[in-house]
Design a protein around this nucleic acid. Structure first.
Length: 415
RNA sequence: GCGGGUGUAGCUCAGUCGGUUAGAGCGCCAGAUUGUGGAUCUGGAAGUCGCGGGUUCAAAUCCCGUCACUCGCCCCA
């Protein structure tokens, strides 16, 4: 421990950052509730299989980015790298599949062992929503409009674009995947090293390659659109119809694919230019295959997650709360007489600070710094008359008020 | 995991053809104002120059390693 710093990829949330995160969290929760989503929470760690099975044993997230460990009882556990798998596991564990649909809002810390960058931490925070048991396109569309409304409420909607695509159902996806592999196999040598690897591990990801050579090859590649079966195509068209009805602007992006194996049909991302390579603010899609992969009955699902740190970088922090009154006693004996007043005011909801020393100048300075609107000053002269000075910190005007009347007076000023 | 950049006071940064006690602004503390904040003036404290090693008579400055941050790739919120 050379310089006493937090572990790589983690950071402290000092009050200012905490306030911003709290604001994002509260805003998202409040708006989700308007859509009927209720908050829930799952454990921060799960049995490793909960993530390994649905995410795919070979996916990078599971293969090299998880914090996995064996506990003292020998159980194989993993810190959650994302929220959806845990929520669906909870749905199955709790027998909630008997009572669908279920609508959840959640948020909290996620963990991925990655190379840190701005907007990409090893411990980071997500908020997310999951709609379970609704297979219709209305569900996809509702989730997207919920995301759009939250981003608008946070004031970042102007800075991002909604990209949307469909992967089709399992059948369509498989057929296309095969066609893509058949097309690319003979061209293997011309692909970038990364994409050659993807060809084995996750061929659809090649569509998202940033390599210029790959992109050129893809121009002639088979198109996903033509491999969609009738149901898949109808589902996507319907999603777009719902979005059009609400006037949600989107951009169809055939190269938008998901890294995680359980996604089907719609996938979408709200992307901003403002954060460089970490521009995805909120992303999700439909995952009708997930519950089955976890060993439960098939349950349709659609959801998204948003990166709190990324959002925090784009919004202006809510202003610091103001203090209603600062109580300053010019000696400990005098402060004792003000002490109960502080308690009384706090009981009725005022924010009260105490002067921790008896140096008047210093305490007024502190009152100024913490944005106190009023100060109560008690010195020997006033105390003899059972009064105290009430000072308006903005105007500097002050008057002597009887101690017994202070609470009433301050409450009146507050309202 | 791969490639590039950066790291000097609490903060933002100057300071490199290596050369006496390492600087500025902001902030902080004190005084002018011994019972009155926000302005001004004066003074002050504060730095293992990220850390470790090497080269040299001499290293913030050059070299190597390491840690952290950062940009791109991978992956992804």
């Amino acid at each position: 421990m050379e310089k006493l710093q937090p572990p790589r990829g983690t950071s402290d949330l000092l009050p200012q950052e905490m306030a911003t995160q709290r604001y994002i969290f509260d805003t998202a929760r409040a708006i989700s509730q308007r859509y009927g989503f209720e908050e829930m929470a799952t454990p921060i760690f799960e049995f490793t299989e909960v993530f390994a099975r649905p995410l795919g044993e070979t996916s990078d997230v599971v293969a090299k980015e998880t914090y996995s460990f064996t506990d003292r009882g020998g159980a194989g556990l993993t810190l959650r790298p994302e929220g959806t798998a845990g929520v669906v596991r909870a749905l199955i564990s709790g027998g909630l599949t008997q009572n669908l649909p279920q609508k959840f809002f959640y948020g909290g810390a996620m963990f991925r062992y990655e190379r840190p960058q701005k907007g990409r931490m090893r411990q980071f925070h997500q908020i997310g929503v999951e709609l379970l048991g609704v297979s219709g396109a209305v569900g996809d569309a509702e989730m997207i409009t919920l995301g759009a409304l939250i981003l608008a409420e946070l004031g970042v909607a102007e800075q991002c674009t909604l990209h949307i695509n469909t992967l089709g159902d399992g059948e369509s996806r498989l057929a296309y995947r095969q066609a893509l592999v058949d097309y690319l196999k003979p061209l293997r040598k011309k692909l970038s090293a990364d994409s050659q690897r993807r060809l084995e591990a996750n061929p659809l990801r090649i569509l998202d390659s940033k390599d210029a050579g790959d992109r050129a090859l893809l121009a002639e590649a088979p198109r996903l659109e033509t491999y969609l079966n009738a149901e898949s195509k109808a589902h996507f068209d319907s999603v777009l119809k719902f979005l059009d009805a609400e006037g949600v602007k989107y951009q169809i992006n055939p190269h938008l694919v998901r890294g995680l194996d359980y996604y089907t049909h719609t996938s979408f991302e709200f992307i901003t230019e403002a954060l460089g390579a970490q521009g995805t603010l909120l992303a999700g899609g439909r995952y009708d295959g997930l519950a089955g992969m976890l060993g439960g009955a098939d349950v349709a699902g659609v959801g998204w997650a948003a990166g709190v740190e990324r959002l925090a970088m784009l919004i202006k922090a809510p202003s610091a709360p103001t203090v209603d009154v600062m109580l300053i006693g010019l000696s400990d004996e005098l402060l004792v007489r003000l002490f109960p007043l502080g308690a009384e005011l706090r009981r009725v909801g005022l924010r009260v600070e105490l002067g921790y020393t008896h140096n008047l100048g210093k305490q007024l300075k502190r009152a100024d710094r913490i944005n106190a609107t009023h100060a109560v000053i008690l010195g020997d002269d006033e105390a003899r008359r059972d009064g105290a000075i009430l000072r308006d910190m903005e105007s500097g005007a002050q008057e002597e008020v009887a101690l017994k009347d202070l609470a009433t007076k301050l409450r009146a000023k507050k309202s």
